[in-house]
Design a binder for these strands. Structure first.
Length: 416
DNA sequence: CTTCCACAGGAAGGTCTGGCGG
DNA sequence: CCGCCAGACCTTCCTGTGGAAG
């Protein structure tokens, strides 16, 4: 009976007392092991409170090293202090993975200054310089200092925005702007316009990865807030910390592991989180990632991915252990298109789709040379082909060819 | 040593969609 | 409705290239 079902669930002591603090977006009041970075950033931005323009800053660091957390934290403190001192100071945070073009960046910033819905800059439609002009006008009528944070700045398409934003001060009469870029790619400035490069990198900060001990402190801090007492022990925390430390000291990863482990434990009605739960969590996270990425792939990419799976089965059957080449994948892809009635794209395009799949970490494709027999990519599934096959099978178009095996095998037969 | 394969991957341009003001 | 805009998605055409074979 349903009633009993819920009763038993209620009776089990939950692991969590506050789940919110384990979520990636949560920013705690204290950021362990980031004092130096916080102070450094504050020392740069304090100029805003004196009504001056702070230097532009570039922050580097791998994922999960606290860049975003530190910037948001300092940004908020800055705004608070600004209010206190009567110095209008504003911090605008944009993530360039979502807001990734010149137009959208300007549009987003402009809309921070606009309160009336009807005056907002539309998603699209205006010429870019008009948005830019509007932005300058809005900024000048408001005055004050604005710090614009561009997170994942390396995802931005083109450096025109950066050029414009770093130069905007000379067009402003009352307002002042400084730009704070966050990147996890150290070499990001390499391809920038030298003028942008120098003005953006007036100050540089590098966030080192956390080591296992520091991750442990972070996890302990959150665990204290998130869990009831006596549901974790040092062993579990240390395990999560160690696993994440292996992966370039990613705190987000560590927190994810611990959170998912706790969720599994709770569902298990376990009294406490054990290392077994951590292990399960590790698998679940990877599986979820693959499933999520695969199912949200566009149609053509799914076809390409399916081609790679089919190709791998085929070459395994032929007793070959090498990866597939771009040409082989393309051959299979063409056959699959015929079966499904999908449009056949060019090989050039397919090569790009293969690169995209590689970047998503769902396949590995590295460029190799086979000497006389050309230069190509060696393509392999990186994990979970069965799971991916299953996910792809859920797709309407692909379900028709779920168990497809090509009739003739052109190149895989034995030419190399 | 040179040749030459089977692509990699850059550049430029085309087509389509969705949203805008007028 | 139109003309215009940005952006996603593709194509066409292209030059460049690591290294086994000759």
């Amino acid at each position: 009976m349903v009633k009993d079902l819920f009763e038993s669930l209620l009776k089990a002591r939950p692991i969590f007392k506050n789940k919110e603090v384990m979520r990636p977006a949560y920013i705690p009041d204290i950021l362990p092991h980031r004092d130096t970075e916080i102070r450094h950033l504050a020392a740069i931005l304090v100029a805003a409170l004196r009504g001056e323009t702070p230097s532009n800053v570039l922050i580097y660091g791998k994922t999960g090293t606290g860049k975003t957390a530190v910037v948001k934290y300092v940004g908020k403190e800055l705004e608070n202090k600004g209010v206190e001192l009567g110095k209008p100071t504003r911090h605008i945070y944009l993530n360039c993975e979502i807001v990734d073009t010149q137009y959208r960046v300007l549009q987003n910033i402009a809309n921070h200054f606009i309160t009336e819905w009807s005056d907002r800059v539309p998603f699209t439609g205006w010429p870019t310089d008009e948005v830019y002009a509007k932005l300058k006008q809005m900024m000048d009528s408001e005055g004050g200092v604005t710090v614009i944070t561009l997170d994942e700045i390396d995802k931005l398409k083109g450096d025109e925005v950066l050029y414009n934003l770093t130069r905007i001060n000379s067009d402003l009469k009352r307002a002042k702007v400084s730009v704070l870029g966050i990147s996890n790619d150290l070499k990001f400035t390499e391809f920038l316009d030298p003028r942008v490069k120098s003005s953006l990198g007036e100050e540089n900060m590098i966030f080192p990865p956390y080591d296992a001990d520091q991750l442990r402190d972070i996890l302990n801090q959150r665990a204290k807030m998130a869990f009831r007492e006596d549901v974790t022990d040092e062993g579990v925390i240390a395990r999560c910390a160690a696993l994440a430390a292996q992966e370039h000291g990613d705190a987000r990863r560590a927190l994810d592991l611990l959170r998912v482990a706790a969720e599994i434990a709770e569902r298990d009605k376990a009294k406490e989180i054990t290392e077994k739960h951590v292990k399960l969590a590790q698998n679940k996270i990877e599986l979820d990632r693959v499933t999520e990425v695969t199912s949200s792939l566009p149609m053509q990419s799914k076809l390409v991915l399916f081609s790679i799976i089919v190709g791998e089965d085929l070459s395994r059957a032929a007793g070959q252990k090498m990866g597939l080449t771009t040409g082989e994948v393309f051959d299979i892809y063409k056959e699959l298109c015929k079966k499904t009635g999908a449009d056949v794209l060019t090989q050039r395009r397919i090569a790009d789709l293969i690169s995209e799949l590689d970047m998503l970490g769902i396949i590995t494709a590295r460029v190799i040379s086979k000497g006389r027999y050309g230069r190509t990519r060696e393509i392999q599934m990186s994990a979970q082909p069965d799971k991916i096959r299953e996910v792809l099978g859920n797709d309407e178009l692909l379900s028709a060819i779920r168990d497809f095996r090509p009739r003739i095998q052109s190149r895989l037969g034995g030419s190399f």
